[in-house]
Write a protein that binds this DNA or RNA. Structure first.
Lengths: 335, 335
DNA sequence: GCACAGGGTCGAAGCGCTTCGACTGGCGCC
DNA sequence: GGCGCCAGTCGAAGCGCTTCGACCCTGTGC
């Protein structure tokens, strides 16, 4: 491995000069800079990450804690993770992948070892165990999601309340009076994942305002579960004409079952989904949907982290505005 | 931050003794060990990762290069990544997430900076650009996938040839004589991704042996693409009674379209998929399938890496045996 | 009773980098 | 013409850890 000292020697300057060429923290004459850069090229020099981290107490690494839940919709997680990784690179950071497995202890480990300069937490619960540790450690962090108590925390998330409201608004505007919400798996509510509850809150509030009846039913992914849920919904509320689907894994089963039952979409029933654009456009019926801006969330989270590390931080909650796109799955309520 | 020296002072021993307690590289008396461990607890000491990396030239980090292709089936990638991360932790390693974005340069950067002790490459192409750099750098690495030239490389992958053969074997055994293969998106073949071609090779070889006709058609995910592909297949080979589906995103559209066309599964046509178990069991028809052992692949890759780092390495290709599970989507060919 | 082995501990020398203070020479300014 | 100033460079002191050789002490074998 080539070292800084070797580069310095090769260029006929001192080690510190090379370091300053690299960091730009002091002015260097053009000729010296060129000589040094030439030597770096020629020797194929790469700074040693460990040494750099030790001397500067900056690792240029951002830790990303992703849940390893199987009941979460994986593509969204992945999309966020990828967006985080690529955005981080454009700011000179690498990303360390931590799974939920290790639990809150991971926060302590990362903070304690200075392995990462900052952390991004995904799948934040309303009363997340990691948060006390995070506050206590004083490590800079950004959450993707919204906990109950966000004092001293920076959060990025889709405005799920507005999302729920938007869906109901759209259906109500089309004349639907009985709406069913196909929710996330029961386990998601049980551990009080913020986004699931907030969506339902938004739906409920808007429904009351618009004088619409709402039936909310958690639902696992897959056909069997969906079939049961659907049967019970129509049993309880035969007049249901509008569906809001929150669980992407339920979208296709729902459409399929409706079709089998002879209920046409959107003539007999309308369906609005909260899902990534790709799911909406590739479904068997092109879905009217509110997009989950996974990439945007990942990007913003990193940008917040970078800002905080640069001292330009803001302890703010950044809620992304939901956008509803009308496609082929919603229409006027049947009279 | 608490340092080694402070722990040493608190415990009344020298710094090196604390280090040896931590690493276990020299014998330490029970009483000393206890005193030191007690001090560590009490002070809340965590070794500094940078310093450790510098002094030991070991970062305890494994870099994972994941593709950021949108045409790959994401859940499998994610599952592998998660398995890699959790398995790595059990061996004391963390995982650095690198996206394909940076390209081959990432290999050079990681190898040069000693940021990671080893690398795991996913989505390896037949003639992957990263491989020459990898060989040249001498960095320890494991591939998930099989390149054309694997001299000096350790690879882990599902035996996709056997997988293809297994599918054909199953269908042929049920009396099917005309089989259609719903392949990956065309782009996947264009960049010569090993697994896609190997599956088809396996299918072709077995088909010839079993005297079965095969029609292979690449196919994007989604309904529109699938509808076109399906129409062309039945146009060309009206007698097709067996399907092998390689692209998970095509599974549900295929089942749905077959149903719409009045072709019953498995009475009229049989479908075998190559996909994760979850997809197979949650589909509208429980699918006979060969599982993609994503977790197992991630785990084995890490274990190979760990073995190599410990000097117990083997430059071997480890092919995982495919397993076909019969479910409800295949039956005897109609006479 | 002595030599020797070996378990247990310590001191010191780095690992490769950043960064601070200090030094030098040339420039503009009064 | 002397002063201060600043751009440009250097030397040295760490950052917190690992590891090697050296040392001491106790126990063992003859």
């Amino acid at each position: 491995m080539v070292t800084l000292a070797e580069v310095a020697q090769h260029a006929g300057v001192s080690a510190s000069t090379v370091s300053y060429v690299l960091s730009g923290k002091r002015s260097i004459s053009a000729t010296t800079r060129e000589r040094v850069e030439h030597s770096i090229q020629q020797l194929g020099y790469h700074p040693n990450a460990g040494a750099r981290a030790l001397a500067s107490s900056r690792s240029n690494i951002i830790a990303l804690m992703v849940p390893l839940r199987t009941d979460m919709y994986v593509p969204v997680m992945m999309e966020i993770a990828i967006a985080v990784a690529t955005t981080a690179r454009t700011h000179g950071y690498d990303v360390l992948l931590l799974t939920g497995e290790e639990g809150p202890a991971a926060v302590r480990r990362i903070a304690g070892s200075s392995l990462a300069d900052a952390m991004i937490l995904m799948d934040v619960e309303l009363h997340d165990e990691r948060l006390p540790l995070l506050r206590e450690s004083g490590h800079t962090a950004v959450l993707i999601g919204l906990p109950a108590d966000r004092t001293g925390l920076t959060c990025v998330d889709l405005d799920f309340e507005a999302t729920g409201a938007l869906c109901v608004d759209h259906l109500a505007g089309l004349g639907h009076r009985d709406i069913a919400v196909i929710g996330e798996a029961a386990a998601v509510y049980e551990r009080h994942t913020g986004f699931a509850e907030r969506t339902v809150d938004g739906i409920r509030a808007k429904a009351q305002e618009a004088n619409v009846r709402v039936l909310h039913r958690p639902c696992e992914g897959g056909y069997a579960a969906m079939a049961g849920t659907l049967a019970r919904i129509f049993d309880e509320r035969p007049g249901t004409t509008g569906f809001v689907v929150q669980n992407e894994a339920a979208v296709e089963p729902l459409l399929n079952l409706l079709q089998q039952q002879g209920r046409a979409v959107p003539e007999d029933v309308s369906v609005v989904a909260v899902c990534p654009e790709q799911v909406a456009t590739q479904a068997s019926v092109r879905l009217t949907s509110v997009a989950i801006p996974a990439q945007e969330m990942g990007r913003r989270a990193v940008e917040q982290v970078v800002a905080k590390l640069a001292g330009r931080g803001s302890d703010e909650v950044e809620l992304l505005e939901p956008v509803l796109t009308v496609r082929a799955s919603t229409g006027p309520a049947p009279s």
